[in-house]
Amino acid sequence: MDLPQVGNPPTSNRPIRLLVRLRQPWSDHRAELTLGAVSLLAGLAIAGMVVFVAVHAWPTFQHNGLSWLGSGGNLDSQLQRMTETSVHPPASAYHVRAWPVIYGTVLTTTFALVIALPLALLSSIFIVEFAPVWLRGAMIPVVRLLASVPSVIYGLIGILVLVPFVGNHLITIPEKTSVQNTVELTGGSLLVVSVILAVMITPIMVALISAALAGVPASWREGAMALGVHRLRATLAVSLKAIRPAIVAATALACARALGEVIVVSMVAGDVSFAPSFAHGPLIFLFEPLRTLGSAIVDNREAFFGGAPALSATLYAFALLLLLSAIALSLGAYLIKLPLRKYQLR
């Protein structure tokens, strides 16, 4: 099968000779080095990403200092002003207070996780423990499909179905008039964003949690049941406890996904960088529009098409914040899961 080719290479052509040499069996050493070098590409990409994004974001931090993170003024008009500056903007053009989008990102991510975590735990338990065999066979493709529906389809359904429904039926006229001086309630809201994000991240969590749950040795649970508890109690007390690191890791990964989801938020969150205020009442709070770090980048993407260096630096800063939190979450999930390998639990 693997004999070295005998005889001369077919032609004296240089590239062909190289090809022939590559087709010869490789030495182990060379293969190891080549494969290792290719494996480093992902690491290089991450390092390059942090460096490039940080360099592009630097001017905005330089001119604003730590108050960049603070609140103050209308973010939309601050960003709008940046588009009106020249190619070499003065230091004053960089003025921005990014709190509304940071707050919006934290809010949507938290709400989505609060909805998705119990849902994911319950459905993982259902899939692994209680679902009849035929239903379990159906659940696996369902979860896989739900995880792979493109975000733009969720966004389309959100903007054409959910947003008008919330705007016309859930928000009452008195609620609209009570805040009409600060913000217009159209239906694009924290509520819709959180619900759609929850639907998007639940399957990711279900996939990870149910894989871990299925990996718990049956004997552990049987031991508990032999002591007299029923199946649900055994699952809750033994299996869930054993896979706690996997649950935390799944939550962290889902959190990273929710942080970085931009298209849905840009489509259904209403087109205002508003910071929802709890002072308006809990229901209205849910109905208020907002913008996240990522959707601010998408909504202002014209800045990258030339002419507004201040704005594009600000957007790179948003991206840097997203990138650093995503790296922290992924690394956290990776490190948390490491001890699970000892028990072959993923």
């Binding site: 992902a42 990409a45 490039f52 990964l253 991206a319 995503a326 992924s330």
Partner: peptide, 23 residues
């Protein structure tokens, strides 16, 4: 290498996009 691929998996696509633009 393992952890950097996990990080790539968790990186928002919008960040990948504007990183590509910068390159």
């Amino acid at each position: 290498v393992e952890s950097s691929i996990e990080i790539v998996a968790g990186t928002p696509d919008i960040v990948i996009a504007i990183f590509g633009l910068a390159i």
